[in-house]
Design a protein around this nucleic acid. Sequence first.
DNA 1: TTGTATGCGTTATCAG
DNA 2: CTGATAACGCATACAA
Lengths: 341, 341
Amino acid sequence: MESSVTLAEVARQAGVSSSTVSRILNGTTNVSHAKREAVERAITALNYKPNVLARNLARGRTMNIGVLTQDISSPFYGDMLRGIEQGLAGSGYLPIFADGHWHAEEENAAIDVLLSHKTDAMIVLGGAIPDQRLIEVAAQVPLIVFGRDIHQLPGQCLKIDNEQGAYLLTRHLIEFGHQRIAHIAGPSAHRDARDRLSGYKTALEEAGLPFIPELVLEGDFLETSGFVAATRLFEGREMFSAIFAANDQMAYGARLALYRKGVRVPDDISLVGFDDLPSSTYTTPPLTTVRQPTYELGITLAQSMLRMLSGERANLPDIKPQLVIRESTVMLRYSASTHRR
Amino acid sequence: MESSVTLAEVARQAGVSSSTVSRILNGTTNVSHAKREAVERAITALNYKPNVLARNLARGRTMNIGVLTQDISSPFYGDMLRGIEQGLAGSGYLPIFADGHWHAEEENAAIDVLLSHKTDAMIVLGGAIPDQRLIEVAAQVPLIVFGRDIHQLPGQCLKIDNEQGAYLLTRHLIEFGHQRIAHIAGPSAHRDARDRLSGYKTALEEAGLPFIPELVLEGDFLETSGFVAATRLFEGREMFSAIFAANDQMAYGARLALYRKGVRVPDDISLVGFDDLPSSTYTTPPLTTVRQPTYELGITLAQSMLRMLSGERANLPDIKPQLVIRESTVMLRYSASTHRR
DNA sequence: TTGTATGCGTTATCAG
DNA sequence: CTGATAACGCATACAA
């Protein structure tokens, strides 16, 4: 546990003032060749490493960017964090992650922690805290928000059009001849979930198909709830030939329920998800879904933040949901008696 | 961007010295009731938030714990990070994550960053840097390592017995009557991969089964490589009735390859992975594998670190690999002609 | 170009 | 119990 070398010691060793050392370190001013050499020699000789804390305190900024996520371990956010990290790489800024667990109080606490650590900026991914809180945060540091649309923060929010995505998915199923499409919705308290439900309804309506409440069950965006919902769907009395799960994770759960029931996908039932998680390429069969390019989104968020930090506007681009048709959906044969009941 | 309130301002507002405010904040010494009240009033009135940077600099410690991971977005590490975060919750310590991407240089850089931020301790997950470097790190801060076994750091390393896990998996297949078991190995540069291969060999040997080099292909622990390997396995001339992929992710890839070939799992081919990622419960069929309880391991790592930080020994427990038998493996019927060729 | 003096916001030492 | 005063390690006006 060797105590670390200070700048002052380097200065002494090199026979110059500490200001000079500081200047060399930061490239603030020109320094004579001789002294620069001496200092550099001293630095390597003493193996000097600047103390970031002291530097930050003196400078008044930390080069840290707080990132509030809702679940580090989820494939969705995980990928996004990787994107953010990548987008920040080489910029000198370091992302500091905190997890809010989709819980308003924890999110607030996490934001406080981040702020008390004097992060120069903040990126918020999803979450359940009121918009107002974020508006306050935005008054203190540059802020970019993903997954929410806050009117008071124009150009600082990035959000996919969930309704449109759900619409595309549902229409895709309808075009494949499906008329009775079940929907495993996300938690109704969740904005994205409501929007996706809404897109589902719109597509049905547009096609002149009836909305059947019994075919809509609510999950919590996790696999287990998809499993439960799909199972219950089979216990219900309404028939269906396709299931639209409000996210990929619930689709995975539903997939297992179907497997357990001996129902084939897509032969008997077509299945679609939402998000296009990396693993959706590898499910059996690969899942038709709507793509949220999480990694790229992370990069975009990071870059926009860097832009904001350099004084420009964040200028977040719009994201169009993109249908990814794979093998879990198939044209409904009209002879099909397989779509149960 | 309101400038933040300082402790000194609180002191002035409350009519006391800044030392007193500091004492109240830290509970260092007793303070008269009257002054305490005044200070607390001032704090809420001014909405004072302590500057963590200044505090850390003065105290000489940050209450931050550096965590070096190799891929934030991987389900394996992601879950572990969540465990670490959970295990640290309420302790006052904050984890700071950095990603080494399984790349020695990046790992070194990340460690330097973490150290320059004066993290009070360090948790290293996997990685490709030489042991020596970690030993040096351990000389500077309390260190705990996961996924490696460094003799010079006794009791500070946590590692599952990979060889034993692979052995269990292979023996399970053998007990199910499989005699020709293919293995999709991890990168041979990777210690875990070598150990798993070794466990596979041991089980074969013990059962008197021949080791067939053509049935062992090397992947890179990612899904795609599992897909490629499984596909190539079918192009080879050696037959097999089971595949042991060195981790779940490659098993997923292999699963897809089998699906594409129209080969059923487990009816035609049994498949096993390694790690028991959360999603392995939801693959079709659910995957037989060996469990690495990532989340719990994360918690363990965090708790051990807290123990170390409080002066005790880390005292890391041993982890026994645990076989999780699900539906991707089945007893081989001797009439089976299905195991191809 | 270089050095001196001062400040960044807290904590810690030391009198009182 | 409380208040000056000196660190903490570095950056930066201000002089020279």
